[in-house]
């Protein structure tokens, strides 16, 4: 059971990278409601309240998902597709945060409904700035979408 409020869901397969990101976010007090998950399956379970997260309140949604593409078990694109094709979760902002600047990844990400696509800068200064702005923007400045339960969606679409 994991029902604490999560503002930023960081899905990052590499712990070292995650730590660098967390280090920056911490400086700006953005880590209080941050959850870091390491693999794709675990992330999906969290979002959809399945598996080890069964029973979690699905309406308790992160303000943003920072999603890496290369992940163990289930890759970032698959998770993105799952989130964006489920009415309960598709309004959750998903930011792809990756090393890949390959056109096909960028194109696929947007096609699947990513809200933003950020290439992680290699140089630490730029990296820090990017992560900090991302955190500030999505967790603090951005107004999150209200959660609309499944049955309500059905009545909306039937109307």
């Amino acid at each position: 059971m994991h029902n604490e409020k999560v503002d930023i869901l960081l899905i990052e397969g590499n712990d070292y990278e995650a730590k660098l990101a967390l280090h920056n976010l911490k400086k700006h007090n953005l880590t209080n409601n941050l959850l870091h998950l390491r693999d794709g399956e675990q992330a999906a379970d969290y979002i959809f309240a399945t598996g080890e997260y069964e029973g979690r309140d699905i309406s308790n949604r992160p303000k943003v998902v920072l999603l890496d593409i290369n992940l163990p078990k289930m890759n970032g694109m698959e998770i993105l597709k799952k989130i964006k094709s489920d009415e309960r979760t598709r309004t959750i902002p998903v930011v792809i945060l990756t090393s890949s600047r390959e056109n096909r990844d960028v194109a696929e990400g947007y096609a699947l409904g990513a809200n933003s696509y950020i290439v992680k800068p290699i140089e630490f200064g730029s990296f820090s700035e990017t992560i900090t702005s991302l955190g500030l923007y999505w967790a603090i400045m951005n107004q999150e979408a209200p959660y609309i339960p499944n049955n309500l969606w059905q009545s909306i679409s039937e109307a």
Partner: peptide, 21 residues
């Protein structure tokens, strides 16, 4: 080239990041 672009960049960023820290 995909793996070069992705997999080599990540450790570089980490080396750079931790050194900077």
């Amino acid at each position: 080239s995909y793996s070069v672009s992705h997999d080599l960049r990540a450790p570089l960023r980490i080396i750079n990041g931790y050194t900077k820290l």
